[in-house]
Design a protein around this nucleic acid. Structure first.
Lengths: 147, 147
DNA sequence: AACAATATATCGCAAAACTATATAGTCATC
DNA sequence: GATGACTATATAGTTTTGCGATATATTGTT
């Protein structure tokens, strides 16, 4: 447990920086891709998105506005409740996510090729493990009100 | 390979944001901790540090200056070469890293406790895998000149 | 109707990183 | 041993990305 606590964050953060550096990110920011990827699984409210991504609500409002301007998402109202904004991904949005992934894969291929099969398998497992842990963190409201 | 390329970055980045959010970072920034942790393994030049951390050299210059002001590192010249700055961690610097880790562990414990033993073991493996991959990325100079 | 609560939007600001460039020191060559 | 190319670090200015505080609009409650 000490091991994980002492090293996971640092390594994950460093990994992110190094990976980002490899790819000429282009038109779309990392956070934007993540939001789009989240939306690819279904519509969300602004606040919901913010919580899932670990961002403040005002940040998400602005981000969503940007995505809308580029035609990657649409904002719909909820008939029952005029305050709510439902965000849904568009076809163009899905295409943008796919495009980013393809570009990223291309840029990363040279790095991944260096790895042995077992290293790659290990990295794949690690990807799963991170996903599970993210789910845990998203589930635990921690210092927020418990919804 | 597509799986890793498509998901690793997004999950790692999200994990970082969620984890950071859990800890009242306090006096020291994440990047600072990482640099100190790197220096705990031995002295480095400014440029070397920047490359290892995936940051631009001017960013590292400023960062190192901040760390020096707090007494966490010292800057030494190289007798042979007056241009070079050798950065070394101090006892206080090591203590700062330890302090951060302890604080981080405390904040994270509630999250890690939720996990089963096997999940935790998996996360530990993931931490290793990330470390290895980071090593690979640091070794491949990619779009830079090959030193 | 008045008031509290909720969802989103706006505003101003701060941190952290970047690019471009300046400065200072070294090395090679003449 | 002076000159110019090269290298290591520093400085300046800007951009990006996020935040907190607060405003606005809508809903629910008494």
């Amino acid at each position: 447990m000490e091991y994980v606590a002492g090293n996971l964050l640092a390594r994950a953060a460093l990994l992110v920086r190094l990976l980002v550096k490899q790819v000429p990110t282009g038109e779309i920011s990392r956070t934007e891709v993540e939001v789009l990827a989240e939306l690819a699984q279904g519509t969300r409210r602004i606040t919901e998105l913010a919580e899932l991504e670990g961002l403040a609500q005002p940040t998400m409002t602005v981000l969503v506005r940007r995505l809308e301007a580029r035609g990657w998402i649409v904002r719909e109202g909820l008939p029952d409740d005029g305050r709510v904004v439902i965000v849904a991904i568009t076809h163009e949005g899905r295409a943008a996510v796919e495009g980013f992934r393809a570009q990223f894969l291309a840029a990363l291929t040279s790095d991944l090729e260096v790895l042995s099969d077992s290293d790659l398998a290990e990295l794949s497992r690690a990807t799963d493990a991170l996903g599970s842990f993210v789910d845990v963190l998203q589930a635990v409201p921690s210092a927020r009100g418990s919804r």
